[in-house]
Amino acid sequence: MAKIIVVTSGKGGVGKTTTSAAISSGLAMRGHKTAVIDFDIGLRNLDLIMNCERRVVYDFVNVINGEATLKQALIKDKRCEQLYILPASQTRDKDALTKEGVERVLNELIEHGFEYIICDSPAGIEHGAFMALYFADTAIVVSNPEVSSVRDSDRILGILQSKSRRAEQGLTVKEYLLVTRYNPGRVESGDMLGVDDVQEILSTTLLGVIPDSESVLKASNQGLPIIHDKESDAGQAYADAVARLLGEEVDHRFLSVESKGFFQRLFRRSA
């Protein structure tokens, strides 16, 4: 049974696209045939993060409008055998995404044997964000430990619970919280909400905590989804999140300053 997963947040710039690239790559690395769709019409960016921006010929809207076939528009990832990217349209208006059109594309992906379909949502709670979440059976709500992001996450949870297709059918969307850009040092000094606080406020299952890390910027500079950087804390935290998504029980890491290895700290200090 194919799974449609939306990566959403309400607020912009919290790490949705970074997460979509990492999680879709991670699922493909674990052997699952995965498609990742950029729903950010007019502000295409997933292609850059996935390093396929120069291979875009057709996009999501072309497929919806019947100007290209799905096969023509899907870009095969160069790093992961099982991963395909469906880029957003750069020029057309957002209303090009219709419920019928999106549903048709999702169904076709499922017919083609895709096991996971990751929908990278645009910011906001308007049409594009709604289209990205409407068909989802699982939602990854990305939140930064910061007041406006947490509040927006709660609004998105409300929309998932009342306006999604599953809600309309009297069913529930499986909701996960992913806290990103986490800085344990600042949490310990009392200036950043702790992950427990965020989870308590949103009362949602915790999928993972991604540390705020320089490695993310370095990876995006090169078009490398961060999960491929196996040395980095953020990359490892995303790999753990993927494992949890697949039903494995994995302890949360990188939650405190102390959790860094003793030698690593020693090295840091002397460096």
Partner: peptide, 27 residues
């Protein structure tokens, strides 16, 4: 000093709990 200084994260948490409860109710 740590205890007397206002912990901004706990202020954030309290404010969020109030506003989120209010908005959920409205919803």
């Amino acid at each position: 000093f740590k205890n007397t200084k206002k912990n901004t994260a706990s202020i954030a948490k309290e404010r969020l709990q109030v506003i989120v409860a209010h908005e959920r109710n409205k919803r």
